[in-house]
Design a protein around this nucleic acid. Structure first.
Length: 280
DNA sequence: TATATTTCCTGACTGC
DNA sequence: TGCAGTCAGGAAATAT
């Protein structure tokens, strides 16, 4: 499932291959993939004729600036979404949802098995947040200068909920998902069910640096292999082999050898080492 | 207001 | 082998 490192890997690939490519047409195979406008044909008409000026990332959202005030194109991969840079005559994948046609017989193909992924067209001179509403409550990016210990402490203070649940909340940290939340908690030595109100200052500082570290490591490795994530050229990442806890329940901790445990918090599985991680 | 739960969906997996 | 049930998870909607 794409989290910040996978989305960032996709963004870099898109900036490498699709810049200045003019969108000559499109085909929406699954209507509900288009979150805005409500009509898929209106979506295609709106972006047709524009070129892609730059790809940006905000949390797990991708945003393409369109040339000549064509507005913007927003994409969220959700669980299983993939953006692939292909030749148009490449056989259609079973779960192809949207095709954006470019020059020289190329296309940007959106493939999404579980159909949770979404695309938006943001009209020019309209605040992006008014169309892509999820952006409105998005927290700061973990790689930004604003992501300080003070910022995180403020977000967590007086919250009586488990830290794992808080880390998955995109209004607390932008871009974390289940995999990297578990990994960051392991690196910082904090148990996932620790209440935010019980965290000490030094634990919050460790958590902040662990979040940055685990995300940075994965970006450098080109994403993860925990899921069916593929970069824009259809190639797997290679982070999976070095996960400390995620999806390793029953296996020995890589640090102390204790069996990794799994519990459920807010409907999501959480993996931890009860020897290396403490509540406080 | 804050937090928890449900919902959307498909394919892999498990047990019978 | 085939079927039914369960599980996985991001984020919006709904419930507590």
């Amino acid at each position: 499932m794409p989290e910040l490192p996978e989305v960032e890997t996709v963004r870099r690939g898109l900036n490498q291959f699709t810049l200045n490519q003019k969108i000559t047409g499109g085909d929406v195979l699954l209507h509900r993939t288009i979150a805005y406008p409500s009509s898929p044909s209106e979506f295609v008409t709106a972006i047709q004729g524009s070129a892609i000026a730059a790809w940006h990332r905000r949390g797990k959202y991708l945003l393409a600036e369109l040339s000549d005030s064509g507005g913007a194109l927003g994409v969220h991969l959700r669980m299983t979404g993939q953006l692939l840079w292909l030749q148009q005559d490449e056989p259609l994948h079973k779960h192809t949802r949207v095709r954006l046609f470019m020059a020289e017989n190329r296309e940007l193909r959106f493939v999404d098995q579980r159909t949770f992924g979404q695309m938006w067209w943001v009209p020019p001179d309209v605040p992006v947040e008014s169309v892509m509403t999820g952006l409105g409550k998005l927290a700061v990016d973990p790689f930004s200068a604003e992501f300080t210990t003070e910022y995180l402490a403020t977000k967590l203070q007086k919250r009586r909920r488990p830290i794992k649940t808080a880390l998955l909340d995109q209004s607390v940290v932008a871009g974390l998902g289940n995999i990297y939340a578990d990994e960051a908690l392991f690196l910082s030595g904090v148990l996932p069910n620790t209440l935010c109100t019980d965290l000490h200052q030094e634990q919050i500082e460790r958590l902040r640096s662990s979040i940055i570290q685990v995300l940075q490591t994965s970006i450098e490795a080109g994403g993860t292999t925990f899921s069916n994530f593929l970069n824009v050229k259809g190639v797997n990442g290679n982070y999976g082999g070095v996960a400390f806890v995620y999806n390793r329940d029953g296996e020995p901790c890589r640090v102390c050898g204790t069996a990794i445990k799994r519990t459920k918090l807010a409907g999501r599985s959480s993996h931890f080492c009860e020897q290396c991680q403490r509540a406080s």
